[in-house]
């Protein structure tokens, strides 16, 4: 066959994972919820009473479209990360449960290839969902004000790399687990922790230099955690992207760096997954 030996079987496994994944009820549920929010946001401003009181109608329309954008971008981020967590937490444990993994691994497929296939499949699902939600969001925006904000595409791209980090570590934990419950909880925890990393820095700043040895120890721990844990807030460039001028040098530098950031953590997540799974007794 033309594919190199080391890539054997990855693609069929990914496709299989994808085909199975997109049929999941939780996933479809989240998707429907996110669509409700996206289209619902268009009507949210109906609760803004007395639009005719404004000095010029224009401003209120701006507020409305801003609300639609903010709500949709957040909805995509939240539902997208939930989909990423639930999918990555369940693909491997589910195969353990229904024993498909035995038939697959008894074939000439090495474990890292199996994991790569699964991981790839998960990413395909996550990307497809993200794209679907984004497209619908753009449709909603189009209906609302007949524009396609191209800058939002960058925001969507960065959101994906945020998902990628959460997804890869959730996946790693799922490789050590026997059911999908623990990795799902862990994934949510990773997401929450990743969002609160800045808080660790605050803890460090407040506690460092304290005379109390306990406090300074806490500061030390907080500092190191802050230094190594992925900071998911970093991916939140919405301010810069959505509202600032098109030419924004910091955003221009940050975007490729953030992509690299996401890829590095995701790679380490995959390595962790492989490390945990390599000698796992199935």
């Amino acid at each position: 066959m033309s594919a190199p030996d080391s890539l054997r079987g990855i693609w069929p496994i990914a496709v299989y994972t994808w085909r199975e994944g997109i049929r999941k009820k939780t996933l479809i549920g989240f998707l429907i919820l996110s669509l409700l929010v996206i289209f619902g946001s268009m009507f949210m401003t109906a609760f803004m009473a007395g639009i005719d009181y404004s000095p010029s109608g224009e401003i209120n329309i701006d507020v409305e479209s801003k609300l639609v954008k903010d709500v949709c971008v957040s909805a995509i981020a939240i539902f997208g990360v939930l989909i990423a967590i639930f999918t990555s937490a369940s693909v491997v444990p589910q195969e353990l449960e229904n024993r498909v993994i035995y038939t697959v691994l008894s074939k000439p497929v090495r474990r890292y290839q199996y994991l790569l296939g699964k991981f790839l499949g998960v990413q395909m699902i996550v990307i497809a969902n993200l794209l679907l939600m984004s497209v619908l969001f753009f449709i909603a925006l189009w209906i609302k004000e007949q524009i396609i904000p191209t800058l939002l595409l960058w925001s969507t791209l960065l959101t994906y790399f945020q998902f990628l980090i959460v997804s890869s570590f959730t996946f790693a934990i799922s490789c050590a687990a026997t059911s999908s419950v623990l990795p799902t909880i862990a994934g949510l925890f990773i997401y929450i922790t990743g969002n609160l990393t800045n808080y660790l820095n605050d803890v460090f700043k407040r506690s460092s230099g304290s005379d109390n040895p306990f406090e300074s120890a806490v500061a030390e721990v907080a500092f190191y955690l802050y230094a190594i844990l992925p900071n998911l807030r970093n991916f939140d460039l919405k301010d810069q992207i959505l509202y600032l001028a098109p030419n924004d040098p910091p955003a221009g530098i940050l975007i490729p760096n953030l992509i690299l950031y996401g890829v590095l953590y995701a790679l380490s997540g995959y390595l962790l997954a492989f490390w945990l799974f390599r000698r796992k007794e199935l």
Partner: peptide, 26 residues
Amino acid sequence: NALIGLCFAAVFILGALQGSRINTIK
């Protein structure tokens, strides 16, 4: 096993370094 563990640690640290780079940029 130790090698893969090391690889993981190394890439993770690289991620953290990239994180500190991003902090500098920010």
